[in-house]
């Protein structure tokens, strides 16, 4: 049973990675939000399994916080934002999608290569998944860079935080409670501020295309 559960962590990790790739490939914003919700759910599941296996009670707390924030609250907020802004599509990316996917594969190889020595040092049950977590972070970062609209960028940012959180859970059985709480609040406040910004950007430029922001440069 224990071994099975330990394996299930790897499964969730793999799901996380696949979802990260799916997000890079996805053009529709609505689907993007659904993918993000799914990613959050698998993160919660992984955290619960780690909490059960290691018996660390504070991981349960953080699982609950993650669930409330990333599976319920933020997707709802994002849905409302895209409804109010009336944006469903995101056809423009700075690079085309196949190129981005190729770069993503390079990043995954890089991340695994990097994580291998660290993972062998870690005594945690889920040490093998550190590479995946790192890959998720880098992939989400890549997504933020190549997207031209504001909403997908925000989702990229949030998904990066997912990867980071997973890395912490996998490698060190969770960060200190304080840090987790801090990050949770940061994410919530961040999403609110970004939401306000999105409205402001649209107000100013009649579009959510962040390339308009180039005009704001101070000369």
């Amino acid at each position: 049973m224990e071994a099975l559960l330990a394996q299930s962590i790897n499964l969730f990790a793999a799901v996380l990675l696949v979802l990260a790739f799916a997000m890079i490939a996805q053009r529709r914003i609505l689907t993007l939000i659904h993918l993000f919700t799914l990613q959050g759910a698998s993160l919660v599941a992984a955290t619960l399994v780690v909490a059960y296996l290691t018996g660390q009670h504070h991981l349960y707390y953080s699982a609950v916080i993650t669930f409330v924030l990333k599976v319920v609250l933020i997707p709802i907020l994002l849905h409302r934002v895209i409804q109010r802004l009336n944006v469903r599509w995101d056809v423009e990316t700075l690079f085309n999608i196949p190129t981005t996917m190729l770069i993503g594969i390079v990043l995954v190889i890089f991340a695994f290569n990097l994580a291998a020595p660290i993972a062998s040092l870690s005594a945690s049950i889920a040490h093998g998944t550190l590479g995946i977590a790192l890959a998720c972070v880098l992939l989400s970062f890549l997504m933020m860079i190549v997207r031209a609209k504001a909403v997908p960028q925000v989702i990229g940012f949030l998904s990066m935080e997912n990867g980071l959180f997973f890395a912490a859970t996998a490698a060190t059985s969770g960060m200190p409670m304080i840090v987790e709480l801090g990050i949770a609040f940061d994410v919530l406040v961040g999403i609110l501020i970004l939401g306000v910004f999105m409205f402001q950007i649209r107000e100013q430029f009649d579009s959510l295309d962040i390339r308009h922001l180039e005009k704001l440069k101070d000369e």
Partner: peptide
């Protein structure tokens, strides 16, 4: 400051890769 968000993100990204 270039004015393009993608460039700013690229700064962080490259820094991250180099640090790693």
């Amino acid at each position: 400051q270039q004015g393009r968000i993608a460039i700013y993100l690229l700064y962080s990204f490259v820094t991250l890769i180099v640090l790693l």
